[in-house]
């Protein structure tokens, strides 16, 4: 079982590295926002898996709050880019 968890963490770390490269490189602000959104979703999944690994229930709450805040942040940036704020 522990090897499955290691595999999952390695794959998530690779995904995070690729989207972090896009976050640094991205030509426009919207590209960076997409990269941030992807990083948030991968981070939520990683927090839940970390909670399972350490047997800490509180990590799931942290993941939920992080998902809500990331969603609100992306919506606010999108409205700002559109010129509606």
């Amino acid at each position: 079982m522990i090897y499955v968890i290691y595999y999952a963490f390695i794959m998530m770390a690779l995904g995070m590295i690729f989207s972090a490269i896009r976050f640094v490189k991205g030509p426009t602000a919207a590209d960076r926002t997409i990269a941030m959104d992807t990083l948030t979703t991968i981070g939520v999944a990683a927090l839940v898996l970390l909670g399972y690994m350490f047997h800490r229930f509180i990590y799931v709450d942290v993941a939920l709050v992080y998902a809500v805040l990331g969603f609100i942040g992306v919506i606010v940036i999108a409205r700002y880019l559109e010129g509606a704020l």
Binding site: Y7, G15, F18, S19, R22, T38, I42, A45
Partner: peptide, 16 residues
């Protein structure tokens, strides 16, 4: 877990 983490990796690769 295996399916989910593979698709998360593909998401990052697609963004790139």
């Amino acid at each position: 877990l295996v399916i989910g983490s593979s698709f998360l990796f593909l998401g990052g690769l697609g963004i790139f």
